[in-house]
Amino acid sequence: MRRPLTLSDRIARWLPQIVLSPSVIALFVGIYVFIGWTAWISFSSSTMLPKFDFVGLTQYVKLWSTPRWHTAVFNIFVFTLLFLAITIALGLLIAILLDQNVRAEGALRAIYLYPMALSFIVTGTAWKWILNPGFGIEKVVRDLGWTSFSFDWISSPDYAIYCIVIAAAWQSTGFAMAIFLAGLRGIDTSIIKAAQIEGASLTRIYLSIIVPMLRPAFLSVIILLSYISIRSFDLVLALTNGGPGTSTEMPSTFMFSATFRRNQMGVGAASAIIMLMTVAAIIVPYLYSELKENRNGQ
């Protein structure tokens, strides 16, 4: 016969929920309530202060009628494509090199992963100094004797976007390397040995066998790096502040400027919802595929 639950039993059962409930409530309010609030503001006529009327899609029409927003959308596409291509290529190359059982692999892995421990504010500030023509790479090279050398991309409207790509790729390459290296270590080495017995070169083995087997790692890297590129507000703010002019304007910096500098809270909220929908369009299919795969594997 089952004994009745005592008070201590009930407390022990409910204690985890009681302890976690403040964090859950704060998380719910801090994320979902404010998402709902931002969505409502995007359908209002809010300017400097929030209003709780309803004007339909007026703010979204105004947003997409703003040339500065078009520049921000174009920049985020250019930045994301270059950032993904460079980071994935370098991360995969470093992972393959480390997978050859090189000496001091642990130290090298830590060195490559170290930039990921820095915030984008620190990365942006450091690269702003490095790329500054007055005391950065250009000055160092000229002091070494190459007086005609010029590297002033950070002050050029045509090339400033590439400075953000360089800084972002430097910070995130180690992250991509770690995921690819974990994928490589999970591949059965007997497959490589069998291919070598058949006479396949190491390059052919990696291109035809190993890289296709890293599909889950590629998917994870692409999803996570895409998310990082969309939320690159702090890196852009520290490195170029959206300039020169609007040449490095991103949706995140546009949202900040519209909301807090130009008193267009409704437009800023509309741009935030557009970014949220973009992130959701990237993350949700990935989570769905992962959950489906886990369910099928059980």
Rank of each mutant, 00 (worst) to 15 (best):
M213K: 09
D188R: 07
F149K: 08
L224V: 15
S247H: 05
W129C: 07
V267C: 09
I187D: 02
L202V: 12
S8F: 06
T58R: 11
I282M: 11
M1E: 09
S23N: 11
P244L: 02
S208H: 13
Y114L: 15
W129D: 01
L93T: 14
N241G: 13
Y286M: 03
L5P: 03
K292M: 04
A104W: 06
R204F: 07
Y159T: 08
G136C: 13
A169V: 05
P212T: 10
S289K: 06
F233S: 13
L239S: 10
W40V: 11
S119M: 01
W37M: 15
E290G: 02
V236H: 02
A110P: 01
Q100K: 05
S155R: 04
Y227C: 11
P212S: 12
V73R: 03
F120T: 15
Y114V: 14
I197T: 14
L7V: 05
G186T: 07
W127R: 02
A89N: 05
S46R: 08
F233P: 05
Q171A: 00
P157G: 10
S8V: 11
A26F: 09
A200W: 07
M48R: 14
I96D: 04
L93I: 06
I111R: 07
F77C: 13
L20P: 01
P4E: 12
P22V: 02
T125D: 09
G124M: 05
A194Y: 01
T173Q: 03
Q17R: 03
